[in-house]
């Protein structure tokens, strides 16, 4: 990335943070609101966005598929389903068991989508998206079933499932941020393997990369980042899909710069989306997940249209 582009990039991140700190009916008037309400929320949006942006870049690279992201592959649904079951089982959101369960849900759902897509023989972009949709739909139905049968607690769970960044517990925020940082660091330490995988597993193998091993490793890293993001903010889609596409235009496709830049870009994108949800429809609030879907779904359609014309 050139120096000018880096400047624009960090300026966008700073602007998103300022927007988020200022967004709301009270504006800049109360320091108390800014420090106690908006600052934790801004930090939560940054962490969730970074986790999802990172996961998107890893999935898109290791699968050589520009349509993949944790939402579309079912990773987020798997994590959300596991989180909802943990809530109902009374497992604390700060306990390691909760994080392990959410990770297991994410990893299980992702591998199920991948395995289903592979059943068709050659792994095609479309088969992967279809398998992800099937897995997501099933898991979402399970979550809805659980929500309707657990009435007394379902209101807060409903907001969690929609994807929102309210009332973040500091313990969860710190644990998730550390997981996302660690996943990002390990991924950056293997950037060249990810680049080789982006040329396809056959090419990667002959360049000296073990494709099976790297696939499991990068799935695990992406699932760790996604589950940490879901633990804070529930199901938020399209951050992981959109961010790498936008960032690639600035940095090029190499994971060496793309991976950290996608994490920062995802952080900026979600922070801005959450702030927009709080300010544009004030005094009512739109969950960040809904704002992202409003922006992301048309983006996904555009990507489909572009890939159907064979010029991604």
């Amino acid at each position: 990335m050139t120096r000018n582009k880096s400047l624009i990039f960090f300026a966008a991140l700073a602007a998103a943070c300022l927007f988020s700190l200022a967004a709301g009916p009270a504006g800049w008037s109360s320091a108390d609101i800014i420090i106690n309400l908006r600052l934790p929320r801004t930090l939560a949006a940054l962490a969730v966005g970074a986790g999802l942006g990172l996961a998107g870049a890893l999935f898109q690279g290791v699968l050589k598929n520009p349509l993949s992201d944790p939402y579309i592959l079912g990773t987020s649904s798997g994590a959300t389903a596991a989180a909802v079951f943990c809530f109902l089982a009374g497992i604390e959101r700060t306990s390691p068991v909760f994080f392990l369960a959410v990770f297991a849900g994410a990893f299980g759902a992702t591998f199920l989508s991948y395995w289903l897509a592979r059943l068709a023989g050659r792994l095609s972009d479309a088969a992967l998206v279809l398998a992800g949709v099937a897995v997501s739909a099933f898991l979402s139905a399970l979550v809805m079933l659980t929500l309707t049968s657990a009435r007394e607690r379902s209101f807060s769970l409903f907001y969690f499932v929609l994807g929102g960044l309210y009332s973040v517990q500091p313990g969860v925020l710190i644990a998730s941020s550390l997981i996302i940082l660690a996943a990002g660091a390990v991924a950056m330490a293997r950037w060249r393997a990810l680049d080789a995988m982006a040329l396809g597993s056959e090419n990667a193998y002959h360049l000296g990369v073990d494709p099976e091993r790297e696939r499991i490793l990068f799935f695990a890293l992406a699932c760790a980042a996604t589950s940490a993001a879901v633990a804070i903010g529930g199901t938020i889609g399209f951050v992981g899909l959109m961010t790498p596409h936008i960032i690639r235009r600035m940095t090029g496709p190499s994971a060496r710069v793309l991976v950290p830049a996608a994490a920062l870009g995802g952080a900026a994108l979600l922070t801005a989306a959450d702030a927009a949800g709080r300010s544009f429809f004030s005094p009512s609030e739109i969950p960040a997940g809904v704002v992202m879907a409003l922006a992301g779904a048309p983006f996904f359609m555009w990507l489909l249209w572009k890939s159907s014309r064979g010029k991604n």
Binding site: K64, P66, A198, E202, P253, N312
Partner: peptide
């Protein structure tokens, strides 16, 4: 044939 959706430069490849 090797194809990728990503715009790697010739030098990077």
């Amino acid at each position: 044939e090797t194809s990728t959706p990503y715009d790697f430069s010739v030098r990077e490849t």
